[in-house]
């Protein structure tokens, strides 16, 4: 099982080893990855284990006397309305965002793959949104969503919908889609550029051969382009599901989970449990559920893509 994950993670063929001097090489290999393991071990594996441990305690930031409470936190989760709402939002957000990023990224890549004048300039600036700090992105959009003075409202007023003027992140029906928009704004160009790279790695001869066979554009797309970028799609989707599901700063900096619970997602709910209610034990139990969900997703997704590959 672990092997399956690792193959999925790396999605590459392993190099062939020569069997000579094997013992020495093993030792050297461990020495080489030691620095990384030390840093990761100290700063994440230990905190991770500590986090898992806390999930079974009643740790409260302001109170002394931590004790183990078994599964009590998890039982409390079952009847916690906001937890379920947050879970729903997290899943919805992740699914919609990753799906739209995939589709829009594909469209962007197809457009960029055309040899047309100006395209190389476009390619070189389009990814700018991906490199700017998230905090800056959020400020930018908060500014644009301001009533009266924000660009969005100015445009809306100009085209005659004066009564729609509002703070867009403060509208419970719009806030979550708006957060999705932020994700798209940041990541779609990255998808586009990544898919483009994968497309350009597909040998031209495949297309030529298909053309001789009389395939039309649609055929070529479904039977050559898509399978050709398959690995890239797997990688992009996998990491972005992780990143989106665990994303904290977009929602926290933009709305903090409000208005009402319209944008509550699990990472923000965890944060609130830890820092508003100070119930770290309970917060950790939510984090543990998130970890479990992502692991299940990971196993299922990798299994499916591995099976497809063989078939």
């Amino acid at each position: 099982m672990i092997k399956g994950w690792a193959i999925g993670l790396t999605a590459v063929a392993h190099p062939v080893f020569s069997h000579f001097n094997m013992k020495l090489r093993k030792q050297q290999g461990i020495m080489l990855i030691l620095p990384a393991i030390l840093v990761m071990g100290l700063f994440t594996v230990y905190p991770l284990l500590e986090g898992l441990r806390m999930a079974f305690t009643n740790k409260h930031l302001l109170k002394e006397g931590v004790r183990y409470v078994g599964l009590q936190n998890f039982i409390r989760l079952l009847s916690d309305e906001i937890f379920w709402v947050s879970l729903y939002h997290s899943v919805l957000l992740t699914a919609v965002v990753v799906f739209l990023q995939f589709v829009l990224g594909l469209i962007l890549a197809l457009a960029m793959n055309q040899k047309l004048p100006g395209m190389s300039l476009f390619k070189s600036i389009i990814m700018a949104s991906w490199v700017i700090p998230v905090a800056a992105t959020v400020i930018l959009f908060k500014f644009m969503a301001q009533p009266d003075i924000g660009l969005i409202n100015i445009v809306i007023k100009t085209i005659g919908f004066e009564n729609l003027n509002r703070y867009w992140l403060g509208d419970p029906n719009v806030a979550l889609p708006f957060i999705m928009l932020l994700h798209l704004w940041r990541n779609v160009p990255f998808y586009g550029v990544a898919f483009l790279a994968a497309m350009q790695a597909i040998p031209e001869s495949y297309y030529e051969a298909a053309e001789i066979d009389g395939a039309n554009t649609r055929h070529k797309f479904w039977h050559i382009t898509l399978p050709g970028i398959r690995n890239m799609v797997i990688v992009m989707v996998t990491i972005h599901v992780l990143w989106t599901f665990n994303n904290f700063d977009f929602v926290y900096l933009a709305t903090g989970g409000g208005p009402v619970n319209a944008t509550d997602v699990l990472p923000v709910y965890v944060y609130r449990q830890c820092w508003t209610s100070y119930t770290i034990g309970y917060g950790a139990s939510i984090g543990t559920v998130m970890l479990l969900l992502l692991m299940i997703y990971f196993i299922v997704f990798i299994k499916i893509s591995e099976r497809d590959k063989i078939a």
């Binding site: 994950w5 093993k26 991770l48």
Partner: peptide
């Protein structure tokens, strides 16, 4: 380049930290 015992477990371990909310870490 090297054959390391538990290599996959190491990779998995490094990645599993990405699945846990940072706010708890």
């Amino acid at each position: 380049r090297f054959r390391i015992k538990g290599k996959n477990a190491i990779i998995m371990g490094i990645f599993s930290t990405q699945m846990f909310p940072q706010v708890l870490l």
